[in-house]
Design a protein around this nucleic acid. Structure first.
Length: 319
DNA sequence: CTCCAGGGATGAT
DNA sequence: ATCATCCATGGA
């Protein structure tokens, strides 16, 4: 099979795959191997070009969102000091288009886990329940369908190191199998409606819902707030705030980061994680704060924008 | 509003 | 080899 050469300016494959949005790609030779949906794919970047097998070219172009106008997106970020640093550091990082069920299931498994561990869970689920796909000399696995996972048991899922998440993943898979939840059909919903549906699933709260919206539904405003982002936001934008509840933080992010807030979030997240030891992560927080000027001091404005909160869990679906 | 289960990787000693 | 730390959701 011949290799296709895909023009990929403004793209950094490694940063994109290692930024905590997707967890199953492995380094193979000079490139990366992984499943895109049901297909096994190898991709290698050389300069501004990607190389992959001819019959995967369109799939790769779409998956890695090479059509996103990255220059415009970055230009839409606020111009505060922190955001500029993150933007420089993350040049070429793109928010990719992941399969909906795969992304939802993976982020249900991600709760209270660090990136390294989420990778292990993703691989364990694939090896046990997915379909093997050979490519070159590697054996890769597709992510198991909701139907397949719905047939499994909580015990089997726990054997994939899911811990208490097994119950939630199983319950959600069964809702999808029973057609009480339809992640594909939800692509047509508004942001607010989509978030409501996602949050009604067991194991899905505001953070996971926003991840899934961003990484699988191309809702580029969705702004997941995890502990890293919250720390960064507090330190940079609310250095003196005594109490700062989740609602106020959400309202601020929607207002400050705007229509591509999800991209901004991913850049801030990746920058913070990669620089945790250099410019002082949590260890240095209380230690020394010399000369750290807030990147942006919010005015006392009324952020009236719609919040990205989860609806009440009263409406949580039963499995 | 607060408190806490949960469990395996990771980094520090 | 041990020990502290990291973490989202959901329920008390």
């Amino acid at each position: 099979m011949k290799l296709a050469e895909i023009a990929a300016p403004d793209f950094d494959l490694e940063k994109t795959l290692n930024s905590g949005q997707v967890f199953h790609w492995e380094k193979i030779g000079n490139g990366f191997g992984g499943a895109i949906g049901d297909r096994a794919v190898c991709v290698e970047q050389r300069g501004d070009d990607l190389f992959t097998r001819n019959d995967s070219a369109e799939l790769v172009r779409n998956y890695f969102a090479l059509d996103h106008p990255l220059a415009e997106i970055c230009a839409s970020f606020p111009n505060d000091a922190l955001m500029q640093k993150a933007r420089d550091y993350c040049r070429g990082l793109r928010i990719i288009r992941q399969p909906r069920w795969e992304c939802l299931a993976t982020f249900i498994c991600s709760s209270m886990k660090q990136v390294a561990h989420i990778r292990q869970i993703s691989h364990a689920l694939r090896r046990r329940f997915g379909r093997p796909r050979k490519i070159d000399n590697s054996e890769l696995y597709s992510f198991p369908s909701a139907q397949r996972l719905a047939e499994s048991s909580e015990k089997e899922l726990r054997e994939c190191a899911l811990g208490y998440r097994a119950k939630n993943l199983l319950a959600t898979a069964r809702l999808v199998r029973a057609n009480e939840a339809d992640p594909e059909a939800w692509a047509a919903l508004s942001d607010v409606e989509l978030r409501t549906r996602l949050c009604a699933l067991p194991g899905v709260g505001a953070k996971v819902a926003n991840c899934v919206m961003l990484f699988a539904y191309e809702r580029l405003r969705a702004f997941p707030i995890d502990v890293w982002i919250e720390r960064v936001l507090r330190e940079s934008y609310f250095p003196r705030a005594r109490k700062l509840n989740a609602m106020r933080l959400r309202t601020f992010t929607q207002e400050h980061f705007g229509e591509h807030g999800g991209y901004a979030q991913q850049y801030l997240f990746h920058h913070a994680r990669m620089n945790k030891r250099i410019d002082g992560g949590r260890r240095a927080v209380g230690a020394k704060k010399n000369g750290t000027r807030p990147a942006f001091v919010p005015q006392s404005r009324d952020f009236g924008a719609a919040s990205a909160a989860c609806p009440s869990k009263m409406t949580k679906a039963r499995a």
